[in-house]
């Protein structure tokens, strides 16, 4: 198939960006979206124009590196990561607009590449269980009810991609944050630091410039891992409990 691509080009963090139009021909429906961009980049390189910068690494939908706004949808029209999106989801002659994640807390580095360092700093603020190597008890010492283990697992599936932020009209990172808080709050090992954790992480979230949550739900819809919105309820519940000083 033949496609028209309108792609965000921006030379650096402090440069003005713009949408530029490119054409690609003979794209096979079996190609992935990023392979289609690889083809375009080979074309640009041959023509002497600098290839378009975009992020990807595993190309298997698990590392969370990739992430593009594709015609206004985070990760494009399917419920998956950008790297797992295939060209059979598009049709011949289509015009596709490709932009980076847009959020104040994710400044553009170049073209389609953004800086998601804010996520690491939120984890640094408390997204862990404090246990030094070597001091752990036997793994069977504390059984975990399967229900809690399963919910912890579901929340822990977050790949830290940032699509939830990109999809949210407030650029809030509450789904990402809620998934981490829920993962650790469901486990017995996560209890001792539970209240302190949520307060520190929310403070860091706000300091990074992410917006507040107004229950729009676009995050969960865009999330390639299907993280449910109820992790935000758990987050809010824990935050209220902590601020009341109940625990």
């Amino acid at each position: 198939m033949n496609l028209t691509l309108r792609i965000w080009r921006q030379a650096g963090p402090r440069h003005q960006g713009e949408l530029r139009t490119y054409k690609v021909k003979d794209i096979s429906p079996d190609m992935s979206f990023l392979e289609m961009l690889d083809v375009l980049n080979e074309q640009l390189n041959a023509a002497g124009e600098e290839p378009i910068a975009f992020d990807s690494d595993c190309r298997e939908g698990i590392c969370g590196t990739c992430g593009l706004m594709i015609s206004g949808e985070a990760h494009g029209p399917e419920k998956t990561t950008t790297c797992q999106l295939h060209m059979r989801s598009f049709s011949d002659g289509e015009v596709i607009t490709i932009e980076p994640w847009r959020a104040n807390a994710f400044p553009v580095i170049k073209d389609l590449v953004v800086d998601r360092g804010a996520f690491d700093r939120i984890i640094q603020a408390g997204g862990y269980i404090s246990v030094n190597t070597g001091s752990a008890p036997d793994a069977h010492a504390t059984p975990v009810p399967k229900r809690n283990a399963d919910r912890a697992f579901q929340a822990a599936e977050c790949i830290q991609c940032g699509a939830c932020v990109a999809a949210c009209p407030n650029a809030s990172a509450m789904l990402f944050l809620g998934s981490k808080v829920t993962h650790l709050a469901e486990l017995p090992q996560g209890q001792p630091e539970r209240m302190a954790r949520v307060v520190k992480m929310v403070d860091q979230h706000d300091a990074e410039g992410f917006g507040g949550c107004t229950n729009v739900g676009a995050c969960s819809q865009a999330c390639p891992k299907g993280i449910p919105q109820d992790v935000i309820s758990t987050l809010n519940f824990d935050l209220r409990t902590a601020l009341r000083g109940n625990r």
């Binding site: 269980i129 246990v131 070597g134 069977h140 090992q189």
Partner: peptide, 21 residues
Amino acid sequence: NIIDQCVAQGVPFAREYGGLL
């Protein structure tokens, strides 16, 4: 020891209904 360490960190390994790994 690896498994002990990971469980203590909150790694959500698959569990049986009795709550054990």
